[in-house]
Design a protein around this nucleic acid. Structure first.
Lengths: 352, 352
DNA sequence: ATGAAAGCGCTAACAG
DNA sequence: CTGTTAGCGCTTTCAT
């Protein structure tokens, strides 16, 4: 046998028909135990390791693959534990159901082709897009053209779309309200990117008009919902510790510094705490810092970040379940998961 | 058209044969530009979004998919920036070559089935295994049975295998030698897991016999290579900050504490530094700490970890290139990448 | 430059 | 319970 053996070879060796041999492997039909055993035996002898997945997929019209589009370059997304937990929720739900996860990178630089070739031509039954931002509309369009049903995680709502989101606006409002209740009046906020252009710094009125990412917009709105009028808005280029540290240095290294900083992610908040420590400020005596996500940040020890916890893994699981629903032909459904304020050691009353 | 249109539909509409229509999409043969255009036009009109990947894959006998087996549960692996950077190197090399990356989880708990079903039956042309430990031999065996060529990253060498490794033993020896040169005599070491059993704690002679993971063994050997005789060996359950902090507390909270701690990863070392700070010890005045990986750890600021930098992304790229080589029928080749000692602020002479 | 024909390896009706 | 038949949708010789 020069080539790899096929089911036909096994069937011939075992003296049964191909369809019977097929049943021996799939178990999807009645077959005599002895026949089954004999087929399996001959398969083993021939070194046949099971039906060719490619042929099976074509025949069934299903690849068993779920494409997961990560909104940014892998190296960026995966440095954020939040993305990783969502991905983990997705795989842990899909795995037992027999689906594999195909990683599809989002775009890296603004000048790269915005749609990865995998989006256009990889085999997948359904797709999940993380961080569905404005730029991802083209990816979404490509998937729709191909007839690949898609679930958006934290994306923009729209009729007929499946979107899995969280009550982030409400959560930010809640933590902001708590700070107001403690007596803070000088509250600043550190935001996620406004768009994919890498801009960083204090935000003025004109920049506010360029707020294209929904997540950022919703969480910023939460601050105002609580009745706060932020003394400063600092836009970062990404949700990493170093971005937060940069923001913290800019906001806190001045006499009229805010007494509280509300951050749109925990990594950003962690960066602000580090900047505060570097500047010799005590947290929370001199400045209160709050985050968003509810990550476990052991390196912030002994501090424990005040944060708005979101069910990250559950978000991934919900997206995976919705993907499976779509696959089964059900109508798209959207979902908003709750968040929860978790008070740590990084917030307290403002300095006297 | 109730069903999705096929190439045959497009061909019929354009009034050409299927084979000609195929050429219009693949470009793999001579075709008149006008014909090509006409086919594409009709395809657009019919809503045909390109050849069905499943059919194409079966016909070509290639899936265009590279399976990447991550050695541990996703949530663990991806919390370690080192794994993520390797993965990033893999995808960034494979993407432009037209390959997709299928994520295959390693086993999570010792009592779970050790081989993910995807290993047995997912379509893939070649596989890459990260952290090829002892337990992964079964995965490797399954892949071999299927005839899927496999590249091991940091795995155990063996004739006919492709292994991409680094000079980690040498690197650990180098950093240990530096500490000896500074005058340290009481050196402890914090290791990665010995096996997948979740054991943690100081290592005695009997436990040393149960050292099943090659990475751990190699890096531990490096300490001895330098001529050090460690006063304590602490085995962790994983390469996370909290594991390092646990080790640090155990090693440093005692009068006869070591004056230097060599760690097998940067995250572990970061945890040790945090533990030292918590205990009121100054780094490096009271205790020197060194890591391995060369990660950028902004949250350790203002400290910069002394570490052995390994080319993480390049390791991923090399693995990807080797995977492609195997795919093209070349003979397996192994590779060892160099490492580099990078001295930061966390090491210095021992206390007087 | 185009078309006809032959499968890739398997599964799912259906008939026996 | 087993065998026969008919494709899944495409690419690729090989003719023309």
């Amino acid at each position: 046998m020069a080539q790899r053996p096929t089911l036909a070879d096994v069937a011939a060796a075992a003296g049964v028909s191909v369809s019977t041999a097929s049943l021996a492997f799939s178990g999807a039909g009645p077959i005599a135990p002895t026949t089954r055993e004999r087929v399996l035996e001959h398969a083993g002898a021939l070194g046949y390791s099971g039906p060719n997945p490619l042929a099976r997929q074509l025949r069934r019209g299903r690849s068993g693959i779920v494409g997961v589009v990560v909104g940014d370059a892998l190296r960026r997304s995966f440095r954020d534990p939040a993305s990783v937990q969502v991905l983990d929720g997705i795989t842990s739900t899909l795995g037992p159901l027999g689906f594999g996860v195909l990683l599809i990178p989002g775009r890296d630089h603004p000048d790269e082709p915005p749609v990865d070739p995998l989006v256009e031509s990889a085999a997948m039954d359904v797709a999940i897009m993380l961080w569905g931002g404005a730029l991802d509309e083209r990816v979404l369009a490509a998937l729709q053209r191909r007839g690949v049903p898609t679930v958006l995680v934290e994306g923009r709502h729209s009729p007929g779309r499946s979107v899995v989101g969280i009550a982030d606006r409400h959560g930010i409002a809640e933590v902001t309200a708590m700070l107001l209740g403690l007596g803070h009046t000088r509250i600043a906020t550190v935001t996620l990117p406004f768009s994919g252009d890498g801009v960083t710094g204090l935000v003025g009125a004109e920049r506010l008009a360029a707020l294209h990412r929904d997540v950022t917009r919703r969480r910023l709105a939460g601050v105002y919902d609580a009745g706060a009028d932020p003394v400063a808005i600092f836009e970062t280029a990404g949700s990493l510790v170093e971005n937060g540290a940069e923001a913290g240095r800019a906001l806190l290294d001045r006499p009229d510094r805010p007494t509280a900083v509300v951050c749109q992610s925990d990594l950003l908040a962690g960066g602000v705490v580090i900047a505060a420590r570097e500047l010799g400020l005590r947290v929370p005596e001199d400045v209160s810092v709050a985050g968003f996500d509810g990550l476990d940040l052991p390196w912030l020890s002994p501090d424990v970040l005040t944060s708005v916890r979101q069910p990250l893994a559950e978000k991934g699981r919900a997206a995976a379940r919705e993907a499976v629903r779509l696959l089964e032909g059900e109508e798209p459904e959207s979902l908003e998961l709750p968040v929860e304020l978790v008070v740590g050691t990084t917030t307290g009353p403002p300095p006297a």
